[in-house]
Nucleic acid binder design. Sequence first.
DNA 1: CCAATAGTGTCTTTTAGACAGTATCAC
DNA 2: GTGATACTGTCTAAAAGACACTATTGG
Lengths: 233, 233
Amino acid sequence: MITYDIKDYRVPIFTVDSVLFSVDSGSLNVLLVKRNNEPFKGKWGLPGGFIDIDNDVSAEQAAIRKIVEKTGAQPQYLQQLHTFSSPKRDPRGFSVTLSFYAMIAYQAVASQLSSIEAVKFIDVDQALKKKLAFDHHQIIKMALSRIQQKALYSMVPAYCLPNEFTMTDYKNIIEIILGQSIQRKSLIRRVEASDMFEPLNKFEHSGRRPAQLYRLKKGIEPYHFQRNMTLSV
Amino acid sequence: MITYDIKDYRVPIFTVDSVLFSVDSGSLNVLLVKRNNEPFKGKWGLPGGFIDIDNDVSAEQAAIRKIVEKTGAQPQYLQQLHTFSSPKRDPRGFSVTLSFYAMIAYQAVASQLSSIEAVKFIDVDQALKKKLAFDHHQIIKMALSRIQQKALYSMVPAYCLPNEFTMTDYKNIIEIILGQSIQRKSLIRRVEASDMFEPLNKFEHSGRRPAQLYRLKKGIEPYHFQRNMTLSV
DNA sequence: CCAATAGTGTCTTTTAGACAGTATCAC
DNA sequence: GTGATACTGTCTAAAAGACACTATTGG
């Protein structure tokens, strides 16, 4: 017979938190939310909170639910980052947070956000200069270095592209994430190998020579390469 | 003012579990423990359990504590794998487990374990054929694929080497993890680039030509390469 | 035509794979 | 010596870096 009541035990506080990235006009942004509850009421922090064990089917779903509540849109990519745990990170007691990093196209959320005071995208370097709630500074730092790594060996940055985009759009996103320029030719070779983009019968006419428009193929897994791109020192 | 009592909320069960790997006589083993509590009493499962929020300082420390309790030895390497969460994975209710993968030299634990009936190393393929507690089957599968990936681009397999070892020992460990043979020359090039081994003034005389003995340098970070080794299909 | 951005061709560089060759031991 | 395992030299192959080249537009 199973006899177990969680209320008989002293258990940690368990939460989820997400670092939602988006690229816009030359800067890599993360979503911050102004807290209107204790602890750290009034401070900026990551979107997240408790699992609703009666309605959520997983921690991932809880994290996505929190992002949807704040932005009105689903992230295009979301993965576990790391679990941070300590008796000190929350004044209420021993706390564990499962953090995620996620990506979304800026265009998918920009309009909704402009009307909400307490939710905003902010340049990641600016965010890291602020006094944030909990250990969210550390979480953002780890998420940043994770997506920078991913940018070197995967197509994951493609998940913050809008529906239609050019190769230059994609190159810009990677360069903004890395903070360094890369070889266009190398990128194109990788995109071809990944087979993740499909060309549309459309061109973008903003520059001089029109640029081929692409979209992400449907139902495809993020491609991982065998090698990292090399960053020139 | 902070008012919060975790007992006022319905919260998930939170545990840690570890997949402890070790290589011995041609097989990759994982540590299994026979459960003597419900749920899944009598079934084999991964070493793990609840955080002791009064004594543990982190989830990592809780995971290590559980491994030490079962084996008497500290793992040489331990990293977060993934957090598994669902309302179904535990009959007691919504449950979250933070899983780790870890490595230890077989020699460091073999003698203690032989005397304990309820704790054993078992070949990972055998383990995956058993009916294990919870979703531990899935956790082991993910841990296996993670260390196989790590074997392709890092020196992490070195953490299941004994204090003194030869290059052939290291090659064998990687081949056992991958289930495939690799080029000795490629391995040596990588070992040199990593600068993680230091040669001793000793040789092993078991084969024909004596083999240089090495040890892991102290206080060194696991090295990661820019490329994967390629597995011939 | 020119300027600017899009896109290609191709040579170099890097590092792993393949594998033949040499070294050192027990017998 | 032979056989076995340890170790090295070196050619080839694969994929990224560098960068010059061509292509296509607006003006």
